[in-house]
Simulated assay, not measured.
Amino acid sequence: MKIQKEIIEFEKDKSFKLFSPSLKNCFFWHYHPEIELVYVEASKGIRHVGKDISSFVDSDLLLIGSNVPHLNFDYGIQTECKQLVLQMRENFLHDLILSIPEFETIKKLLEKSHLGLSFSGKTKQTVVEKLHSIKDKNTFESLIGLMEILQILAHSTEVKELNSEDTRIKWFLNDKIRMGTIYSYIHENYDKKPNVNEIAQTVSLSTPAFCRYFKKQTNMTFTDFVNNYRINQAQIFLLKDYSVTEVCFHVGFESLSYFNKLFKHHTGKTPSEFKKKHLSNIVESI
């Protein structure tokens, strides 16, 4: 579960690549020096960018800066999933953007991308349309299209910063290796009873020290994080048409009423409401 450095290869004489990867069943926690723009379309998924671990519904558009650790966004998705990933060469910012005054706003956007930026609304819709349109264009036209996309993102107000501090790999590599062990433990035990004393011992910390460390890394207590993970997994199982009761016990809750209450707190809907809405959307799209 250690974080991996992804080696990205580009075609000769191309500054970026645009493709549609599929790693649904692979937990690929990685980083790379290339700045990345990701669009993922699915009924429900999890995003893990830097320290931020949150969920998205329907779709997400993210700009991820150089050397920011992130999980593949199709991980664990059991329904139909579409992805577009655009990766820019490591020297893209330095060679093309920095030297041109007219690109000042784009420069600021790319410099801020180390926080992980999620775009919504009209911005997301317009950018996704342009991503599809540049797929089949020649090299020069596609580059111009990319600059237009970056300009749109740079001027957008429909943006959320996922992290409040620098989470690039050089800043917290050792901590993230330890977090990989913790994340693996939670993933393997969320449906049972994850034991804070057991995982603290695994990463060679006392329980109080582990709790302080975990809260600093995730801005959540261990219990809150596990429950958040359970709710994310519950949404995936609901979309596979399990009953609410089945899902409740399948993800490790012992009380149906508590599961319903916590689910609504996290998603704004009861499990039944969530299932009805999103399963009907899936049926309508078929």
Rank of each mutant, 00 (worst) to 15 (best):
F140R: 07
E141W: 02
L143D: 06
L143S: 07
I144F: 03
L146A: 04
L146D: 00
M147P: 01
E148G: 12
E148N: 15
I149N: 01
I149T: 02
L150D: 00
Q151G: 05
Q151A: 03
I152S: 05
H155I: 01
S156P: 04
T157I: 01
K160C: 07
K160V: 10
L162R: 03
L162N: 05
E165Y: 03
D166Q: 10
D166T: 12
T167S: 09
R168D: 01
R168C: 05
R168K: 10
I169M: 15
I169C: 06
W171P: 05
L173T: 01
N174D: 14
D175R: 03
I177T: 03
I177H: 11
R178I: 11
G180Y: 03
G180H: 04
T181W: 01
T181I: 07
I182V: 15
I182N: 09
I182L: 07
I182K: 09
S184A: 09
Y185T: 14
Y185W: 10
Y185R: 13
Y185M: 13
I186P: 12
E188R: 10
E188W: 00
E188Y: 01
N189K: 10
N189F: 00
N189Q: 07
D191E: 11
D191S: 15
K193C: 02
P194C: 04
V196R: 11
E198N: 06
E198C: 03
E198Y: 08
A200I: 01
A200H: 05
T202L: 15
V203G: 09
V203Q: 12
V203K: 15
S204L: 10
L205G: 02
L205K: 11
L205H: 06
S206Q: 04
S206P: 02
S206T: 11
S206I: 02
S206G: 06
T207S: 04
A209T: 02
C211H: 13
R212Q: 10
Y213L: 13
F214W: 12
F214R: 11
K215Y: 12
K216R: 12
K216I: 04
K216Y: 11
K216C: 04
T218E: 00
T218G: 01
N219V: 02
M220G: 00
T221I: 01
F222R: 08
T223N: 14
D224W: 07
F225S: 12
V226L: 03
V226P: 06
V226E: 00
N228A: 07
N228K: 13
Y229W: 10
Y229S: 02
Y229G: 01
Y229L: 08
R230N: 04
I231C: 14
I231G: 09
Q233F: 14
Q233D: 10
Q235N: 06
Q235F: 05
Q235K: 11
Q235S: 08
Q235R: 12
I236H: 09
I236G: 00
I236D: 04
F237G: 00
L238A: 09
L238P: 13
L239P: 02
D241M: 03
Y242C: 11
S243Y: 05
S243V: 09
S243E: 09
T245M: 08
E246N: 15
E246Q: 15
V247T: 15
V247N: 12
C248Q: 04
F249V: 12
F249E: 15
H250D: 05
G252S: 13
